[in-house]
């Protein structure tokens, strides 16, 4: 796909994008404390393609919301690209999200009154990008998601898969450090889901864009290079650690 190089972010390959330390989120804290997320450590590097899995109520969305700066942890810190986002004010967080994080939601969430192009352009307008640069970027993004012919079509005239591809383009429009995708394939048929995952995987591979998915979908889990399993708000399994342990074991055996 052409033009992917233009989407490259600022963090160097392999550098930490997300560093979450001891983060917890407690609900009903005045009566019986229920930990939605309990003392989670998470370290994500640039270029990772990670799936956050677990049963319903395991804390996936809460963790994703906290990493995305939509929710604040009750304990712990989240450092993104060197910035402790738990220390930011509500307004600073909005600005931080605008410039560093791309979101893809389960139900597409495009603005229904705007065309596909305007939806993608919207983020860039919030960033006060000039018209010329916006136009160039919109055209590149639409080529990458394969919807060059749907620029001026409203979301209601697009299929679910096409809408989600536009949502990915919108998430990429702000040149974010990483993309958080909450159940992005949940409402898509197999072909659309597969097509969307192909695009995301390609962006990850060629552009080194970091993806963190919260998902139940086996199709996403199969594509992920790292899978973190949450159970009752704790990380029950992290394939990155398993891989590291295997590496350590094989190294010690060799020695």
């Amino acid at each position: 796909m052409p033009g992917l190089s233009s989407l490259r972010g600022e963090t160097e390959r392999g550098a930490a994008v997300i560093d979450a330390h001891n983060i917890s989120k407690v609900y009903n804290s005045k009566t019986i404390p229920v930990y939605a997320v309990n003392n989670v450590h998470l370290h994500l590097e640039r270029g990772e393609f990670t799936a956050l899995v677990g049963p319903s109520g395991s804390g996936k969305t809460t963790l994703l919301n906290m990493i995305g700066g939509l929710d604040k942890p009750d304990e712990g810190n989240i450092i993104i690209n060197g910035v402790d986002i738990t220390k930011l004010s509500a307004n600073e967080l909005i600005d931080f999200r605008l410039r560093n994080i791309g979101f893809v939601f389960q139900s597409f969430n495009l603005i229904p009154v705007l065309t596909a192009k305007e939806n993608v352009e919207f983020i860039m307008q919030l960033q006060k990008m000039n018209r010329e640069e916006r136009n160039k970027r919109v055209i590149k993004l639409f080529k990458e998601i394969g919807l060059e012919d749907k620029l001026n079509v409203r979301p209601s005239k697009l299929s679910g898969g096409q809408q989600q591809r536009v949502a990915v383009a919108r998430a990429l429009a702000s040149k974010p450090q990483f993309i958080l995708a909450d159940e992005p394939t949940a409402n898509l048929d197999s072909a659309s889901a597969s097509n969307l995952l192909d695009i995301m995987a390609l962006l990850n591979k060629e552009e080194n864009i970091t993806f963190l998915f919260s998902t139940h979908d086996q199709r996403v889990i199969d594509r992920a290079r790292r899978v973190i399993t949450l159970v009752d708000g704790r990380i029950a399994k992290d394939t990155a650690e398993v891989n590291t342990n295997i590496l350590h074991t094989s190294l010690s055996e060799t020695n």
């Binding site: 995305g68 939509l70 509500a90 307004n91 909005i94 600005d95 999200r97 605008l98 410039r99 979101f103 939601f105 969430n109 603005i111 229904p112 983020i123 919030l126 960033q127 919108r170 998430a171 702000s174």
Partner: peptide, 16 residues
Amino acid sequence: KFEMGMLVAIGMKKIK
């Protein structure tokens, strides 16, 4: 309501 939540989530300042 949902859409407004999404707008703030993706980076639209509340004042806007």
